[in-house]
């Protein structure tokens, strides 16, 4: 039964109609987009979803003006250190979190703006050789950083005004943590992947490292995206940027692996493979949907529970897709080009 489950299920022709283009925004001043995301914003008693775009030296906030039209509200300029990524903070309002650095993340900053007072600021949350960062519900930010001697894993509780209210150290594993993922429905649990290809679990309240479980050598450099706890098992969505193609499974983009935290044993539950003759991927997961940019410049979308590729956005005449991110709260998929064009799709 397990072998049967591991057989990839790929549609011959992925249904593109599962993605509907809602609107397009174009940052004409952007020479090279590095990331795109969404943030909840509350102003004048109204809460709405806004789009955030980032280039190396600027981060811009966009508001919906009409159903298919976006206007730029504000641009923060960050000239000293290049922006590497936008760090989503689920359910947080009026705060944009960005990671900056050269090759690796060197600092994490919070960006604030008030249209009522027309004031803006950014505050430094963390500096160091930061290897991984994740934003969690309830304005919590967890990061791992490394010195020559030791690794530090820390959770920062952010204030509404962009400060750090509290800090909690988490017990670091011996291996470098490469990614974090929140566990759906378990506020105090956090999952991480390590450079040694293990999945680790923390208790965020006590800071304890609860378990280390090996992923397996067939999937080097696995990255965790999301986890769900159900019926005593921990289901972790992993992406495999470096996994090689195999005859039985094709090239895995995402895999759902069930771990028994009690025994440390694991088994693969579902594969989501690259469409035929596609290579390379850089992925993002929301709920049970995965999206990845392929080296061809296309964006592929998977239903991770069924292991099916459900949509492919081919590269258009205007250029290749370079970014694919899920909007917060299931509001859709954001696909971005390097020239600053962003398409928002309903999924």
């Amino acid at each position: 039964a397990v072998a049967e489950q591991l057989t990839p299920v790929l549609l011959d022709g992925p249904r593109e109609e599962s993605l509907q283009l809602v609107s397009e925004l174009k940052d004409s001043s952007c020479s090279c987009a590095v990331d795109v995301g969404t943030v909840w914003w509350e102003a004048a008693g109204r809460r709405e979803l806004r789009v955030v775009t980032a280039s190396e030296s600027t981060v811009s906030l966009w508001e919906p003006l009409a159903p298919d039209c976006w206007g730029k509200v504000y641009t923060w300029h960050l000239r000293e250190v290049p922006v590497i990524q936008i760090v989503p903070l689920p359910d947080t309002c009026n705060l944009v979190c960005v990671a900056l650095g050269e090759l690796e993340i060197g600092e994490i900053r919070l960006l604030l703006h008030s249209s009522e007072t027309d004031s803006s600021k950014h505050s430094l949350v963390k500096t160091g050789n930061i290897k991984a960062v994740v934003g969690l519900k309830d304005r919590r930010l967890v990061s791992s950083s490394r010195t020559m001697q030791e690794q530090q894993v820390e959770m920062v509780l952010l204030s509404e005004t962009g400060g750090s209210k509290d800090r909690q150290s988490l017990m670091p594993p011996e291996e470098t943590v490469t990614a974090f993922a929140e566990v759906e429905g378990m506020r105090e649990a956090l999952v991480g992947t390590t450079a040694g290809n293990s999945v680790v679990v923390w208790n965020l309240k006590t800071g304890q490292l609860l378990k280390k479980m090996h992923v397996g050598y067939s999937y080097p450099a696995s990255i965790c995206h999301r986890a769900y706890s159900d019926s005593g098992l921990l289901f972790v969505v992993l992406s495999h940027p470096l996994a090689k193609k195999s005859e039985s499974c094709g090239s895995p983009a995402f895999r759902v692996v069930a771990f028994n935290p009690h025994t440390g044993q694991s088994t693969g539950v579902m594969f989501s493979c690259l469409p035929l003759s596609c290579a390379g991927r850089q992925g993002d997961v929301w709920d049970t949907a995965g999206a990845a940019v392929l080296t061809s410049g296309a964006v592929a979308v998977w239903d991770l529970l069924q292991g099916r590729c459900v949509a492919v956005l081919p590269p258009g005449p205007a250029g290749h897709w370079a970014l694919a991110r899920w909007a917060t709260s299931g509001a859709g998929l954001l696909a971005g080009r390097r020239d600053g064009t962003v398409h928002l799709y309903r999924y």
């Binding site: 017990m171 208790n203 609860l210 378990k211 098992l233 921990l234 771990f259 028994n260 044993q265």
Partner: peptide, 23 residues
């Protein structure tokens, strides 16, 4: 997944591992 694949399953794994792990 069955118990034979993954060993005995505990619904309270998080609490049990918290009690067992070093503080």
């Amino acid at each position: 997944c069955s118990e034979s694949d993954l060993g005995p399953i505990s619904l309270n794994w998080f609490e049990e591992l918290t009690a067992e792990a070093p503080p």
